[in-house]
Nucleic acid binder design. Structure first.
Length: 81
DNA sequence: TTTGAGCGT
């Protein structure tokens, strides 16, 4: 299962997410897509934890919490479109 | 500011 994190601050880095979700379990994947035209962050990211129960805990715990100045959205990711 | 990528030797 992949976690989707939205409404991210532009100050947030891929490593920051790894540290944040690393509190719940081992981060096996983490991607933060950039806009290909501008090179800017797009304001969302994806994280995979090794343990599915840790993912569920992280989603419940981090949902809508203020992180780096913004209330982030955390949910189960949808399949890549 | 809210669902990613690979396009080639």
């Amino acid at each position: 299962m992949t976690i989707f994190i939205g409404n991210l601050s532009w100050d947030a880095e891929r490593e920051d997410l790894i540290h944040l979700f690393g509190e719940y379990g081992e981060v096996s994947k983490c991607s933060m897509p950039l806009d290909r035209e501008t090179g800017r962050k797009r304001g969302f990211a994806f994280v995979d934890l090794a343990d599915e129960q840790a993912e569920t805990a992280a989603i419940n715990d981090l949902q809508n919490v203020e992180w780096m100045g913004r209330a982030i959205t955390v949910r189960k990711a949808e399949p890549r479109r």
